[in-house]
Design a binder for these strands. Structure first.
Length: 561
RNA sequence: GGCCCGUUGGUCAAGCGGCUAAGACACCGCCCUUUCACGGCGGUAACGGGAGUUCGAUUCUCCCACGGGUCACCA
């Protein structure tokens, strides 16, 4: 076979050589140890949690080492492309602290533009580049055209399944496949010429030289040493529309763009042999690989399953809607990514997570289950450290978008809202009531008449008459100008009057000699004023609500009993 | 089914030949308390199974089981 001739036949318009291309993509000059990483999404949908994971690793590794994080759009599948997805992806990532130094970024006009010297960063615009390398491979007898159409392939597979092979017999199917594959390698230049003359479409396949009985040694930075069988599958390099498959584009682009670390989900591990082979064929140095364990969820049978796009919690935009702040999500992601992160956080409560020395060795090799309990806990801590002003602003922003009526109310009197959120905030032991912005309404909605409602009746263990009397006495005694001590002394005194202990120690010593204690008395008042069994500090609540409202609510409660 | 990866409490996880097998979340209890919280202290709970190597295995090797991933002109 005259490969030189074959290459000319197939790619007669390609005049550049690999050397020409290499000259256009000179090696980066970066300090020793600087890592070049990337996020390479296909614009087919939203960012999902599983995608934020490797991306965060890529971002940390690049920026921690003084390297480069770039974004490359892998739009090689026109059929699946979703318009606007790339822009949405970039925006979402930005809210989670992932900012790109280079690559496809959003320009001032709101459209995607290139930034950096290694573009274009959209694979659909790099056709010429791939073709140069494709031609070279053909020339070297490492790739060949295949004129079997998609329909024919499908038909072949169908037949395999129909004839004596049960649809579960993978082995037989694989063998049959392999036989066909080998078949396709047999062709003559004349046949190719004829096909071309007839305008038949073709794909370019690699001529795989691997022996699956032999293993390639490989070291993954996360998974460690492993051995994988050599690849013997003539996989597709260029699709019939001339656009490369992921495999081919990955090899060419990551080499040309100077990626030092390829960070991706472990679902890529099975195709690693292909990539290694490709890099070898192309004469490229292989980058370092990090295959990150997947985030899992529990399926209906209680088994772990990869968190897929349709799952709740998969779409990062869901978190926004649920009211999680990005800082909290990042914080949670970090705890999952590095096992010593939480320890570091305890020692450095006020530092940004970007100051944490991210360590590849501290990464988990197995997939973890998403845990909302943990996220909530992390989130409560994050929010508890924010200022009242900050919280007010963020809750308002969230509400405006997802609970317009509530949002309007908050915005109508910002100072009022801020006063509310200031309760118990600051200091060494701040309250931790909010895990999400969505929690704000149930937490403090009672401050607004619109959302005020009695959530539970008084426990039956207490005498209604006592409650009425206590409420009534309190209403008479309440003076908004009292300081906290005076205010509470009054409550204690009222309690005592009706047989409720004001001294907790005395009460505990002999609970039977009392009807209850101050906590119960406070609860009577709390329920009347806030409608809830749990609420922030009553004194602060009353200060903000004001005498009129407090007394009005208490009177109403008395009347209803 | 082939191949690859994985398996310490309910969850996330330390461990890297010798420990009463950390810690965090969740759950439970107690304490503190001028209410609600915060906080403090404590508790329940784990090395998938079997061989081997070794004086000694959670840790090393092999086998099995289980779980996951993957087998496209999708990434």
């Amino acid at each position: 076979m005259d490969y030189q001739k074959l290459a000319e036949l197939l790619y007669k318009d390609v005049s550049k050589t690999p050397a020409d291309i290499e000259a256009e993509f000179p090696p980066r000059s970066l300090p020793e140890g600087a890592k070049v990483t990337r996020f390479a999404p296909s614009p087919t949908g939203f960012v999902h949690f599983g995608g934020l994971f490797p991306t965060t690793v890529a971002e940390r590794l690049a920026h921690q080492s003084g390297g480069v994080l770039y974004l490359r759009i892998e739009d090689t599948d026109a059929k699946r492309e979703v318009p606007g997805a790339a822009e949405a992806l970039i925006r979402t990532l930005a809210t989670y602290g992932i900012n790109f130094d280079e690559g496809a970024i959003i320009g001032e006009n709101g459209k995607i533009t290139d930034k950096g010297a290694y573009g274009p960063y959209k694979q659909s615009l790099r056709g010429d580049i791939y073709h140069v390398f494709a031609k070279q491979l053909v020339k070297e007898g490492k790739a060949y055209p295949c004129f079997t159409t998609e329909e024919e392939l499908e038909e072949l597979n169908k037949q395999n399944k129909k004839e004596e092979i049960k649809n579960t017999d993978w082995q037989a199917e694989a063998e049959a496949r392999r036989k066909e594959m080998l078949e396709r390698r047999n062709f003559t230049i004349e046949e190719v010429e004829a096909h071309l003359a007839a305008g038949d479409p073709f794909v370019l396949r690699i001529l795989a030289d691997g022996d699956p009985d032999k293993k390639v040694k490989f070291t993954d930075l996360v998974k460690g040493n492993m051995e994988i069988p050599e690849n013997d599958e003539d996989f597709v390099l260029l699709k019939s529309d001339g656009i490369p498959t992921y495999h081919f584009a990955h090899a060419v682009d990551d080499h040309l763009m100077g990626t030092t670390h390829v960070i991706r989900g472990e679902e890529w591990l099975p195709s690693l042999a292909k990539h290694l082979q490709l890099f070898r064929y192309l004469g490229f140095k292989t980058p370092k690989y990090m295959h990150i364990a997947q985030i899992m969820k529990l399926d209906e049978n209680g088994n772990k399953k990869k968190l897929s796009k349709r799952d709740m919690g998969a779409n990062m935009d869901d978190y926004t809607e649920m009211g999680y702040c990005p800082e909290a999500v990042c914080e949670y992601v970090m705890t999952l990514l590095n096992s010593n992160y939480e320890e570091w956080r305890m020692q450095n409560p006020d530092k940004s997570y970007t100051e944490f020395p991210f360590n590849i060795k501290k990464m988990s090799v197995s997939g973890c289950l998403f845990d909302f309990n943990k996220l909530n806990d992390v989130s409560k801590n994050v929010i508890s450290k924010m200022s009242a002003e900050d919280v007010t602003e963020k809750v308002s922003a969230w509400a405006t978008k997802f609970d317009a009526e509530f949002g309007e109310l908050l915005l109508a009197d910002k100072d009022y809202a801020e006063k509310i959120f200031a309760i118990g905030r600051g200091g060494k032991k701040p309250r931790k009531d909010l895990a999400t912005w969505k929690d704000a309404k149930p937490y403090m909605g009672f401050f607004y008449d619109k959302y005020f409602e009695i959530e539970a009746p008084y426990p039956e263990s207490f005498e209604k008459e006592d409650i009425k009397a206590i409420l009534s006495d309190f209403n008479d005694a309440f003076d908004a100008s009292d300081d906290m001590n005076v205010w509470f002394d009054k409550i204690k005194a009222i309690g005592e009057k009706y047989g409720y202990a004001s001294d907790m120690k005395a009460y505990k010593a002999s609970p039977e000699s009392f009807k209850g204690n101050v906590a119960d008395v406070s609860m009577f008042i709390r329920l009347a004023v806030t409608g809830k069994i749990n609420s922030p500090d009553m004194y602060s609540v009353m200060q903000i609500l004001g005498k009129e409202k407090v007394c009005e609510r208490i009177a109403k409660m008395i009347a209803s009993l």
